[in-house]
Write a protein that binds this DNA or RNA. Structure first.
Lengths: 271, 271
DNA sequence: CAGGGAGTCTCATATCTTGAGAAGCTTTAT
DNA sequence: ATAAAGCTTCTCAAGATATGAGACTCCCTG
């Protein structure tokens, strides 16, 4: 089992334990009873009990009608405040909607965090196969189009830093498996202006992404379109890339990253 | 100042403090330095420092480039897991979109929590004045249409329980200010089948809501349409109510609360 | 009705957090 | 330049605080 390693010089046992409880409840897709929590985390039942009561008081967990525990809505509140401070999501949403309307495939908005990309938002077309991504979840950089899009436009130092942290897991046959292969792919991506994930994360899924650059031209996020390989074909990629570029340009203007009126394109290349 | 009262029989000081830190960072719309956190919460700077370091390790807070602290994205992850367990939001979204398209006003999806309603989702029409509500935030039951919609369809015992907890703050001239006035309003709402907030929360804002009933016919949420009073006029209310009813019926079907094929209307009344 | 499992509660003990203060570090003022 | 103030990081001894054994209660199940 994964076990939130409490390494690090600073320690507050109570916090590590509390977050372990939240983690456990978050992983589980069914509410858990006190006994289950206590034994899973190797806590004495009375300790687990006290934690749960305190967490409940803070509405970090709540009890279902049959007395079991699950995550509380306070977390939802906090979560929304956390991304609000970015407020990227709100501003991007209308642009993503338009993008989805144009392409009729699922769009994602992601940011980089350590060596993973976090899904800030997802918009799905009206009648599409539901994708399994969850907003708030994360994936490794090296096997997603969004990850590669951001990575390819980072400064060499920061990119190297990120690459160093990657654990090159193989998720499909095509997953990039070595730092060198990734570097080659990054060059290609940078030249082309958009990143492609060709069934590298999941069989049958193809994605294409472009980075969103801030005023300093640093990538702060990426927008992608994902769909089944048979619909998102190789020939369509350039056209989709164009829609993506228009989309990020719109977002850039909204965020005040670029002057707007002038045709200041977000990425320095021509379609 | 609000000060998360650590009353209650069970206590874990460290947790109360940690959540106070998160609270503080959540309230502030600009990142805070260690010294500010320490003094605001009356913690010793070294204590505050330790907490922040531990919270950072858990990605509950993160540091901006200039070393200040703000809420971390782990919270966003947790928050999404918390409502996923409801999964009401995902299923409701397409229906809310349609509703917004039909009415061209802002739609909200809310649930009841203690004596407040929490905004689970908000969809805004393409070109509208931005409303100030924030997803994840909450408002008192008695001065919102969603609150009243849920309250009016709760069992008398549970409704009484909720009413008992309300602190009747006056937010505008028209805010309902007494339990009795609220009870009268509830009867009216129940009879009519939809709830109206006529500038009771905010001057110039009119809202209308209907409850979403689960398989046991208990209200689990409410959907509302809100807009400036001059657009959401009294004459339009019945028409909007109809759209709302269609919307919640669709959600009910999606959630598996009602059989779907049959014209099993969510609320027992005719428009 | 007995037995087992799950949750709640109390209290003495020792573990874990606490906070004073010293030392680094950065920014601002003179 | 240099001083001074302000903010952050780190160490360690003292003692407040969380801990967990265990008793008690309440269901459920057989």
């Amino acid at each position: 089992m994964r076990d939130a390693a409490p390494q690090g010089t600073y320690k507050v046992q109570a916090l590590d334990r509390a977050f372990a409880v939240l983690d456990l409840l978050g992983e589980s897709d069914t509410p858990l009873g006190l006994a289950q929590v206590a034994s899973s985390l190797q806590l004495h039942k009375s300790t687990a009990h006290r934690f749960l009561m305190v967490l409940e008081r803070h509405r970090m967990v709540e009890r279902t009608s049959n007395g079991k525990f699950r995550l509380g809505l306070r977390l939802f509140d906090f979560g929304n405040r956390a991304i609000e401070q970015y407020d990227l999501r709100d501003r991007a949403q209308p642009h993503l909607r338009r993008l989805v309307a144009e392409t009729e495939e699922t769009a994602h908005l992601c940011i980089l965090e350590a060596a993973r990309v976090i899904y800030l938002d997802k918009i799905e077309p009206a009648r599409s196969v539901r994708m399994i991504t969850r907003i708030g979840a994360s994936n490794p950089v090296h096997c997603t189009s969004v990850g590669k899009a951001i990575l390819a436009f980072l400064s060499p130092e920061r990119a190297a830093e990120v690459v160093r942290r990657i654990r090159f897991e193989r998720l499909t046959q095509r997953t990039i498996a070595t730092p060198d292969a990734l570097r080659v792919e990054m060059e290609k991506t940078h030249r082309r202006g958009y990143a492609v994930d060709d069934e590298e994360l999941e069989e049958g899924l193809r994605c294409i992404a472009v980075p969103l650059l801030d005023a300093q031209r640093q990538p702060v996020a990426a927008v992608s379109i994902s769909g089944p390989s048979f619909r998102v074909t190789a020939q369509k990629l350039p056209a989709i890339a164009n829609h993506l570029l228009q989309c990020v340009r719109g977002i850039s203007v909204d965020m005040g990253y670029v002057s707007g009126s002038r045709g200041n394109r977000a990425v320095g290349w021509t379609a």
